[in-house]
Simulated assay, not measured.
Amino acid sequence: MFLPELGLWAHLAIAVIFVWSGFVRSGLGFGGAVLSLPFLLLVDNRPLVYLPIIAVHLLFFSSLTIWHSRAATDIDQRVDWRYLKRALLIMLAPKLLGVFGLLALPNDVMTAIIFAIVTLYSFSYIFNKPFVSKHPGMDILLLMLGGYVSGTSLIGAPLIVAVFAAHVARTRLRNTLFALWFILVSIKMAAFIWAEVDLQWRQHLWLLPCAAIGHWLGLHAHNKLLQANSQAFYRILGWLLLAVSGVGLGTFVLA
């Protein structure tokens, strides 16, 4: 059930990265892909191997979170379906364009694009200048860009969160984002099936439990992360992402 072309250390690294992915996704409500995909591509430079696995994890854990939010007695923690529907109308067309772009682009070009986007995100973390939307026109632009990037590589979260954070209550933000990820990833999975992309079902036997461990840890850390001043965490994370993306882009240029 393991990837036969990779060694033991590569498999251990992949397992740890998926634990980290699950922790970030449930702890913050976003970032499971953007904060793990660059590390995965350093282990094995094949985006279409990892994207279906990440997509299935998003579907599985987002559905759990949405179900839990529907059962919550505190209405302030439920999904903001009203704003979610408005945003989806803006994002749908760019999302579809991004999905078909992913399927058409060569593997190396897609990898370089992912590292370039993550490099841009890393600077926003390092200098504490997150993407911010303060105008309806900027809302539309960021949602369209986020939808397109999400379609190509599932790493459009920082752009999308910039808009949702301005319109959705903080206590409802994570669950609303999980509902959004479920819908967007369902579109991507349908495209994968249509294009007959290998969905890597055998790899889920060992990677889904890894993500589940991270998901459980993130659920317990969520309230603390909401209350914490996370600037130092994001700055360190930004430098780490910049280093990883730099190595990835350097490898691509020298290849």
Rank of each mutant, 00 (worst) to 15 (best):
E5Q: 12
I14F: 09
V16C: 09
I17M: 02
F18L: 01
F18I: 07
V19R: 03
S26K: 10
S26E: 07
G29E: 01
L37G: 04
F39I: 07
L41Y: 00
Y50Q: 03
P52V: 05
P52T: 02
I53V: 11
I54P: 03
V56P: 08
L59Y: 13
F61G: 00
S62P: 06
T65L: 11
L88R: 13
L88M: 12
L89F: 12
A93F: 14
P94S: 00
L97F: 14
G101E: 02
L102Y: 07
A104F: 14
D108E: 08
V109K: 02
A112V: 08
A116Y: 10
I117T: 06
V118W: 08
T119F: 13
L120M: 04
S124H: 10
S124A: 06
Y125E: 00
I126L: 03
K134F: 13
M138K: 15
M138C: 14
I140H: 12
Y148I: 07
G151N: 04
G151S: 00
L154E: 02
G156E: 02
A157V: 10
I160F: 08
A162W: 07
R174N: 05
R174G: 05
R174V: 12
T176L: 08
L177H: 11
L177A: 09
K188C: 13
K188E: 06
K188A: 13
V197A: 09
D198M: 02
R202K: 11
L205A: 03
A211P: 08
A212F: 13
H215M: 05
L217G: 02
A221H: 15
L226S: 03
I236R: 15
L240I: 10
L240H: 13
L241V: 13
G246H: 06
